[in-house]
Design a protein around this nucleic acid. Structure first.
Lengths: 235, 235
DNA sequence: CGCGCTCGTGACCGGGCTGTTACCAAGGCT
DNA sequence: AGCCTTGGTAACAGCCCGGTCACGAGCGCG
């Protein structure tokens, strides 16, 4: 979802695994950010000094320096928010303290939807222009990021985590057709190896919950994918 | 919990341990304060003269000067409230009596929730704009900081210290989802190394006490954390 | 010195979420 | 019109997550 504001936030992606680095770089760039990548802690520090980013996405497992050391060194010169990447089961104890300075963390394997959402959240908090107001709306459908609530025509709708992520993706791209492949790549974890039938299932779930008392909002575009939009006459 | 008032209070953090200094600086800044840090008594005095703070957070164990000496010297030029940091077992007698001048103290290892609450309390008393009224309320749930009392629908609820701190944090952030990591970082002491299962336990305790005779107020958001909010129809 | 309360951990249990499959419906093409 | 492809939905099983309970340790208080 290309962003429209004047100056795109500058991100520094730090990960030694080329696949992950590339995945993040490409898709974050596509999401409207300006992205610089580094493969090691030293490269990261060097790059950050040469070209200070607005936010750093930092794998905690790096070959040369520990991610936390990199974080400390990064902040010596300048206050910069960090989104940590960490293995799911690794070191819960080391995780403590990560959420304090407006920082946050995401566990591997992550979904890009999750990463982008966290980046937006952290930038919103630290830039602090709008104290806290992450709300998206399409027609009478409303999504509140802080409370993690979805309402249609004011009525609360309970969603599972995956349903929520899927809906957020659809809403952020309302009026645009999204293919099942795009949705899979974006909403599901990058290591997901399943069939794309799962997308159909979850679209079905969402339709049930969203459209049980109201006109259709998720339309099928045969051979292409799905589009979320405000209903207009003739549907 | 970014604060929204026009001019953020200016804090001077004085501690020789870099980790603690950094921890306090970052998280207090994030809590909406303007923060300057000093690593020694001399630095503190110098900084305070150059740039007078609204409150000083002062470790009593400093390499060069005793914390109390620093306090005295600070007060020579200007009356400024002080929040002392002290080791748990050290010098209770010397510390008591400090609370007379509007000062207060917190023992190490502290929880950030505690530090922020004390700072707010001291500033409230010394600024004296609002004589003394720290009450938070969510629905029919009421928390009185001065009396350290919690009531639901007027009925008094007895809480342990940890339960109280947890509830205060939830109430100050009502309507926002808080992850277990955030809660651990903020409510538990900074040296806490346990698992986040403890948060679940304490949420369970709170639910027992708060919701024994009334609708649910602490909601679980699967995969994310907890949110405290007024119950609304459809739950 | 001992009693009791509170904090913290580990284990067990239950529920709901996830992902697959199978069957059915609808659309399109020839 | 009929066939074939594509999508929708429902049902199901496995599993992960969270809730609660129970036990143990530490501490303060009597």
């Amino acid at each position: 979802m290309p962003m429209t504001e004047e100056s795109a936030p500058r991100l520094l992606v730090v990960d030694d695994e080329p696949n992950i680095r590339e995945l993040l770089s490409v898709s974050l760039r596509f999401s409207g950010f300006e992205v610089v990548a580094a493969a090691s802690g030293r490269d990261a520090l060097e790059s950050a000094e040469r070209d200070p980013p607005d936010l750093v996405i930092l794998d905690v497992m790096l070959p040369d320096l520990d991610g936390f050391q990199v974080a400390r060194r990064l902040r010596e010169s300048r206050q910069v928010p960090i989104l940590f990447l960490t293995a799911r089961d690794a070191l819960q104890d080391k995780v403590t303290g990560l959420t304090l300075g407006g920082d946050d963390y995401v566990t591997k394997p992550f979904s890009l939807e999750e990463v982008v959402a966290r980046i937006r959240s952290v930038l919103r908090r630290t830039r602090g222009d709008t104290p806290s107001a992450a709300r998206y709306r399409v027609g009478d459908l409303e999504l509140n990021e802080d409370a993690h609530e979805v309402r249609r025509a004011g009525r609360l709708i309970e969603l599972s985590p995956t349903e929520y992520k899927l809906l957020r993706y659809l809403m952020l791209n309302s009026g645009r057709v999204l293919s099942k492949a795009q949705i899979l790549d974006r909403v599901w974890n990058y290591d997901f190896a399943g069939q794309h039938g799962i997308v159909e299932s979850y679209v079905s779930f969402l339709r049930h919950k969203l459209e049980s008392q109201g006109p259709r909002m998720i339309y099928t575009v045969r051979g292409l994918g799905y589009i979320l939009r405000e209903p207009h006459e003739g549907d």
